[in-house]
């Protein structure tokens, strides 16, 4: 947990430097090269960018924490509603990807481990590995061609009609979620597979088999529970990758999520929007890590935090 807080702090420093310090004279950038120096100074003063860096950083963080994310340079209105809307959309997309990939990835890994070194294992392991190394936009393009252009099964854009219900939205989200699914599938299946192999090879599994428990019970009660612990950690660490992938996928499918929000903001040099978007992503990441730590301790009786002794 402390590590994700350091990450968040580091990210906030980078965002601050990248968005507020390195681009130079903000007032000059807004008013243009021909504006009067006094006007530039006045604007800089009213924006607060002529104050000491530490003060600026503290004010920025304090305002963010209170929900004041500043005013967008492009839309000339508060940033917060944009960020909240976009975050909601991204969560939907990520949720579809996660709901698909976690059970299927774990199942794939378990099946591979139970068929160790047989053809089924080879197919799952090699297939998982090769789709994992491909950039999301490459698998995205190929999937769009197959399911959107040639078979015409799924819409090629994620922009659903207005007032679309839950299932219509879901229908529009399947194709964008698939590339994310493919990238994550390989990692999760590989972790589940190696966790399974280790658990199957352990003394407690041998004991369970030798004391005459049915194979099914051994797998469910003894092997799976121990095998899936490392997998949960991996799923949590993949949140970072998932967020990076969202930026690409949302751009490819023209989806109004947090990824395309920071992408558009970066292109338009809309610094308040960019900074708030990235910082929001950092907070989501830190929360995801916290939830993973909690789940890990719930599932692993050996480290039940604070309750035992």
């Amino acid at each position: 947990m402390s590590l994700s807080l350091i990450t968040l702090f580091l990210l906030s420093i980078m965002v601050f430097l990248g968005g507020q310090v390195l681009p130079g004279n903000v007032g000059r950038a807004i008013l243009g090269p021909f504006a009067d120096q006094r006007a530039v100074d006045a604007l800089n003063h009213s924006l607060g960018v002529d104050r000491p860096l530490l003060t600026q950083y503290a004010t920025w963080i304090w305002n963010f924490v209170r929900g004041d994310m500043g005013t967008s340079y492009i839309f000339r209105s508060p940033v917060a509603p944009f960020v909240i809307d976009a975050l909601g959309n991204s969560m939907k997309l990520a949720a579809v990807a996660f709901v698909l990939v976690v059970p299927i990835g774990i199942l794939g890994g378990v099946i591979a481990a139970l068929n160790l070194n047989r053809p089924l294992d080879r197919i799952i392991s090699l297939g998982g590995l090769s789709v994992t190394v491909l950039p999301e936009f490459v698998t995205g393009i190929i999937l769009i061609l197959i399911f959107g252009v040639w078979l015409r099964w799924l819409p090629i854009s994620a922009a659903w009609p207005k007032d679309a219900g839950f299932f219509t939205q879901l229908y529009y989200l399947i194709l964008p979620a698939l590339p994310l699914f493919l990238v994550l599938f390989g990692y999760i299946a590989r972790m589940a597979r190696s966790g399974m192999i280790e658990a199957l090879d352990s003394d407690y599994t041998r004991t369970a088999v030798l004391k005459g428990l049915p194979w099914r019970t051994v797998i469910w009660r003894h092997v799976l529970r121990n095998a899936l612990l490392p997998t949960i950690t991996v799923i949590a660490t993949q949140t970072g990758y998932l967020i990076g992938g969202l930026v690409v996928i949302e751009t490819l499918f023209r989806y109004q999520g947090i990824g395309s929000l920071i992408f558009t903001a970066a292109r338009g040099k809309d610094f308040p929007m960019l900074e708030s978007g990235i910082l929001t992503i950092g907070i989501v990441y830190a929360v995801a890590t916290l939830i993973a730590d909690f789940l890990y301790s719930v599932l692993n009786p050996r480290i039940r935090l604070g309750t035992d002794q």
Partner: peptide, 23 residues
Amino acid sequence: SRILEAFMAIPVVIVALLAIVAL
């Protein structure tokens, strides 16, 4: 090591967005 580990959690795309806006 702590700083490096924390840095590793930030997706390359995000670092790139910031660097490209700044540089």
